[in-house]
């Protein structure tokens, strides 16, 4: 289709506007992270630091236990991602291949679980975990994260299972392969990329999560990165901007890297899910 020149120009102006809106806060964060305290105190901040420095990063590590927090985040996110995928994949397989009442109920749960405010879930969870002595512990948090990641994991995995033609499994069965054999040697390899993408997405979600971690983790040495980051902001809302920006920037890097890896697959999977009909 031909587009008139004026329209095209207008489209580019609009696109440029979007690019600026999406990018500028992040660029400002990076710029602030590398500015020395003197520049942050001056009234006319510049886009580029005049004297870039790494002091903020050093200070951030001195002020808060960032390394411990990163380790806690890593354990929580890895644990949640691995367990969620391990238990979600078989269930997703059943949901995709069998049209049972159970599969329908599970789909219903996936939808309904999105609508409930976390506060209604967290109070009972808090009481239950307290009785199990799993408050203020990373394993307790992992349990919560697994269930919290399940709806989306199931959703994605059901799509990936549907993309594996049932005919291939049937052909293997005709050739005399048992059910387990079929799953292991035919279905699993075809599903693997989807499983990895789902695990990575669950990893990012858990790495970024704040509310459950805030409620369930009480002592600083058990807390995850997002919770520790909020400690940079003082009681009166006054923050030491440089170290705050530096720590925030570092905490974002893992999510950005992982997301860049799976972006095609996530958006592609969503597109496929929505387009295929």
């Amino acid at each position: 289709m031909k587009t008139r020149k004026g329209t095209r120009a207008g489209q580019y102006v609009a696109l440029l506007g979007y690019l600026v809106f999406l990018a500028f806060p992040f660029l400002w964060l990076i710029s602030t992270a590398f500015k020395p305290a003197r520049e942050l105190g001056s009234l006319h901040p510049t886009w580029l630091p005049r004297n870039p420095t790494l002091d903020n990063f050093r200070q951030a590590f001195d002020e808060q236990p960032l390394l411990d927090a990163a380790l806690n985040s890593l354990v929580a996110a890895l644990g949640a991602a691995v367990i969620a995928v391990l238990i979600a994949t078989p269930m997703a397989y059943v949901m995709a291949r069998h049209r049972t009442r159970l599969a329908k109920a599970a789909t219903g749960w996936v939808v309904v679980s999105q609508a409930f405010p976390f506060v209604l879930v967290i109070i009972p969870l808090f009481l239950v975990l307290k009785n199990l002595r799993l408050i203020n512990s990373v394993p307790g948090l992992i349990m919560v994260y697994v269930v919290w990641a399940l709806p989306f994991a199931l959703w994605m995995l059901v799509g990936y299972v549907r993309a594996v033609p049932a005919e291939m499994e049937e052909a293997a069965a005709v050739d005399g392969a048992g059910r387990l054999r079929t799953l292991v040697s035919i279905t699993a390899p075809l599903l693997a990329p989807g499983i990895v993408a789902t695990a990575l997405f669950a990893f990012i979600s858990a790495w970024n999560e704040f509310f459950f971690a805030l409620v369930l983790l009480k002592t600083p040495e058990k807390q995850t990165l997002p919770v520790v980051l909020t400690h940079f902001i003082g009681a009166e809302g006054v923050a030491d901007l440089g170290p705050l920006a530096a720590a925030a920037f570092l905490a974002t890097l893992p999510s950005l890297v992982v997301f860049a890896l799976i972006q095609k697959r996530i958006t592609g999977g969503m597109l496929a899910g929505a387009v295929k009909s």
């Binding site: 696109l15 979007y18 690019l19 999406l22 990018a23 500028f24 806060p25 992040f26 400002w28 964060l29 602030t32 942050l40 105190g41 001056s42 009234l43 901040p45 886009w47 990012i204 790495w207 970024n208 999560e209 704040f210 990165l225 997002p226 919770v227 980051l229 909020t230 940079f232 902001i233 923050a239 901007l241 705050l244 920006a245 925030a248 905490a251 974002t252 999510s255 950005l256 992982v258 997301f259 860049a260 972006q263």
Partner: peptide, 30 residues
């Protein structure tokens, strides 16, 4: 645009909040 659109998506919400606090900062904000 596709690449940039990832940033808000992948970022921890806490970092999004911190980042905009810095943007809105009365003195040092852009």
């Amino acid at each position: 645009a596709r690449a940039l659109a990832i940033i808000p998506w992948a970022m921890p919400e806490v970092v999004v909040g911190i980042m905009w606090r810095i943007v809105y900062n009365p003195d040092a904000g852009i």
